[in-house]
């Protein structure tokens, strides 16, 4: 196991270099020098800001030197200062929002797994039944549904028409005076719609994947053996089949992370949730380059970490991976 883990960690190094190279390339994408471009298009960038950018990116030096300097700054989490009037360090801005975005994504992930696994198992077990066809239809809707439209419909129905849940934000006014129980209730009411929305979209792919994986396992000889030796059906499905069918789903979970995190831009913008997605949207709108670049690097790194976690947990449950 330790050998496997260290091998995986070693593999992460070239990936990280690649990620920073792509991010670095985006900075240098603009025709002409980025500073010129940024200052002509952004009235907020003063002469001083221009100097700061040249300093941050070291634009007078040769490219490899620029990259190396930039990399050294990144490793110290020095992403420069924001262009916005508050001029705060980018890392400070990201730090206070990262927990919110990760928390919401984790919640949706839990809901996705809690619903998709039983749904997929049942659809595979009763393949080609009405239940299976119904979930297939649901999956097609899930794949075609624009996330922001789903959010709008949820707001319209539960927020405006029924008036059950708050329309936006993470907390109500006067939140700090509430007791901890009321605080939890208030927070819960605010995150219900965004979390449910994100979960519904992830659900389609995951339940489909669970179904496919389960169908494959059910056809295996050892399942027939388990049935032949007279095991109760529940034990066959949940103890013998599900365990093996879950393996590829774990990998899929890691691969679905980019989509989920990308979705936070949309959900956080619509529901006015102060997370990383909303920060990115605001930064793109205001051409706040240091913030945009900082976000790109951090989010790519988080995704890489998520993939690593998925692979490691895969190896933990499946001994075949470790020997291989």
């Amino acid at each position: 196991m330790w050998l496997y883990l260290s091998k995986r960690l070693l593999f992460m190094v070239p990936m990280l270099i690649g990620i920073t190279l792509v991010s670095f390339a985006v900075i240098h994408l603009a025709p002409g020098t980025p500073v010129e471009m940024q200052t002509t298009m952004n009235p907020k960038a003063s002469l001083e800001a221009q100097k700061r950018l040249i300093e941050l990116y070291g634009l007078d030096k040769p490219l490899p030197v620029q990259y190396w300097d930039w990399l050294k700054r990144m490793s110290r989490l020095d992403f420069g200062r924001s262009f916005s009037p508050d001029r705060r360090p980018v890392w400070d801005k990201i730090k206070e929002r990262i927990g919110i975005t990760l928390g919401l994504n984790l919640l949706s992930l839990i809901i996705i797994m809690a619903v998709a696994v039983p749904l997929g198992v049942l659809a595979a077990y009763r393949a080609h039944s009405w239940f299976d066809k119904g979930t297939t239809l649901l999956v097609f809707f899930g794949f075609a549904m624009p996330s922001f439209w789903l959010a709008l419909l949820l707001i319209m129905f539960f927020g405006v028409y029924l008036d059950w849940l708050p329309l936006s934000g993470l907390t109500s006014l006067g939140y700090s005076q509430l007791s901890w129980w009321r605080k939890l209730q208030d927070l819960g009411a605010h995150v219900t719609l965004p979390v449910l929305g994100a979960a519904f979209l992830g659900l389609a792919g995951m339940s489909r994947y669970m179904r496919g994986s389960m169908l494959e396992v059910i056809r295996q000889d050892y399942i027939t053996t388990a049935r032949a030796k007279g095991l109760p059906e529940g034990a066959v499905i949940f103890k013998h089949a599900l365990r093996n069918a879950l393996l590829p789903v774990i990998t899929m979970l890691g691969l679905s992370l980019p989509g989920l995190i990308g979705g936070s831009v949309i959900f956080e913008t619509i529901f006015a949730i102060p997370g990383m997605g909303q920060l990115l949207w605001g930064a793109v709108m205001a051409r706040d380059y240091p913030v945009v670049m900082g976000e790109l690097v951090i989010v790519a790194f988080l995704t890489l970490l998520g993939n690593l976690l998925a692979d490691v947990s895969y190896a933990l449950v499946d001994p075949r991976i470790r020997t291989g």
Partner: peptide, 12 residues
């Protein structure tokens, strides 16, 4: 594939 595509698109 590692990049959340939407983040990359927005940065560009």
């Amino acid at each position: 594939l590692c990049f959340p595509t939407l983040f990359l698109i927005l940065a560009v």
